[in-house]
Nucleic acid binder design. Sequence first.
DNA 1: TACAAACTGTAAGAATCGTTTCAATGCCTG
DNA 2: CAGGCATTGAAACGATTCTTACAGTTTGTA
Lengths: 288, 288
Amino acid sequence: MPEFLVGELVRQRMGALSASERRLAQVLLAFYPVAGLENLTRFAERAGVSPATVTRFITKLGLRGYPEFQDSLRQELQERLSSPLTRYELTATADSSGSTLHDAFATHEHSLRASVDMVSEHDFDAVVDLLADPRRRVLSLGGRVSAFLARYLASQLHLIRPGVELIDPERSNPADHLVDLGRRDILVVFDYRRYQSDTINSAKVAAGRGSTVVLVTDPWLSPAAASARFVLVTGVQTTVTPFDSMVSAVALTEALIAGVLARLGETAHARMRRMDELRGGVVYGDGP
Amino acid sequence: MPEFLVGELVRQRMGALSASERRLAQVLLAFYPVAGLENLTRFAERAGVSPATVTRFITKLGLRGYPEFQDSLRQELQERLSSPLTRYELTATADSSGSTLHDAFATHEHSLRASVDMVSEHDFDAVVDLLADPRRRVLSLGGRVSAFLARYLASQLHLIRPGVELIDPERSNPADHLVDLGRRDILVVFDYRRYQSDTINSAKVAAGRGSTVVLVTDPWLSPAAASARFVLVTGVQTTVTPFDSMVSAVALTEALIAGVLARLGETAHARMRRMDELRGGVVYGDGP
DNA sequence: TACAAACTGTAAGAATCGTTTCAATGCCTG
DNA sequence: CAGGCATTGAAACGATTCTTACAGTTTGTA
């Protein structure tokens, strides 16, 4: 029976995993450890991969098989649950401390923290590389809730590199943008519950045309994951609202932009200066 | 999937159980819920009873069978583990800096933390009250960078109350919306550096027509503050990018929405249900 | 473009798991 | 003490679950 924590192990090996395996890792970390305590088939389904991939994944972690994997998780869980502190945490009931404002921000902070683990660093870097490649076109698309994220990405990315387009289903038919997608193009899809069929479909079409599909989604994974080359997962925790929180998604988007900017360096800055001149807004204040 | 907690259920039925069954109950409660997450045979062994007794025990609890029993335990566990506080305890890892991703998220976290102090609780509550008043119209407007925030607010608020409009300078002239603004109307303006003259102007016009202007801006305050009845400030800290971070702004926006939702209660929920029916998206997965 | 290597899913088989049946045992009651 | 009822475990069956072998696909490279 292994001594180490499975979660740690997964994070360590993340780099050595294949795309599907990484998807499993993400789901596991997002719903840790419960996802791994379900049976192999269900775990596979949650991540949208085949059962065989799960077995390979487990083997790569250095474990003998799925049963041993589950044993480790259970043992680990037992230890955590019996630590006095956690014990308290688990027993403590929902503490509605005070104001909506404070509660909301506290939740957002936790959500952010949790998200860092959910995003695969490997995938993140790979996506930044893609987005920083000036020869590739970038299309950005979102569902009903996440449309604003697509917009945000497109508008900011547009400032630092050419070839960025927003697909706005409210304004034009996505199909118009999808027809001439090619092998060099990137489609960034934002899809958070409740997942939309047209978004999922767009991803499928793009993948079918050989484009690279990047999906940004919640831990339950939009079905569009099936068509995606890279899946970036962010937490959406909310305690108070039926709505998911998009804070982590925005954080991720900004991180992507920062990454691309860092990679493009002076080229991007030059472009930004030019854009600035063309626009010429009013500039008050003097920030740092 | 049962609503109750299995542990509670067991304690309740304790009296109605036979000797062997009670041993099972004790083991389960002593190692809760891990004991029940092992397979039936092992659970039986731990309690020193036969597998058949386990099945009978489960049945007596009113559950359909061992798999359903485990499902309940897992679901329950998941819910407990995702309480923000616990989440923090369980997730906290050695944060090794270096990568863009980690740096970005760390910054965002600080930004969030700082923002809580910048927002005036009093103003926040007042704004929530305003936005929750169904007799008032709400117009949402943003600058170049912050347009997506205006969109986000409008789309979410639209779900929970009528009379919400987005002013989209890209699509139509803001003036068209402003002409018939009245004393009862609210204009929510998002303006982050670099401040735009047309946004500032819209705020001025609205204020002039007697509408209540709410401004969401950065710590340097958009000049639109002059026309605003309420000003909500959020942090924008960034270390790596020339761009400001909108994470806190999103957090604030969501907090506003949560606040309004809380105030409107059932009315809002009813509206949401209706909207949902009319839209009818694809729903995969089953969130917590 | 063609080839090799890596990846992934399908499907079949092996192993494990959960349920049910039935007989044995213990316990209370008449 | 005998009869009946509740309780329990052994064992066999059927269902599920995990593993493995193989083939199709994709990806990267010469």
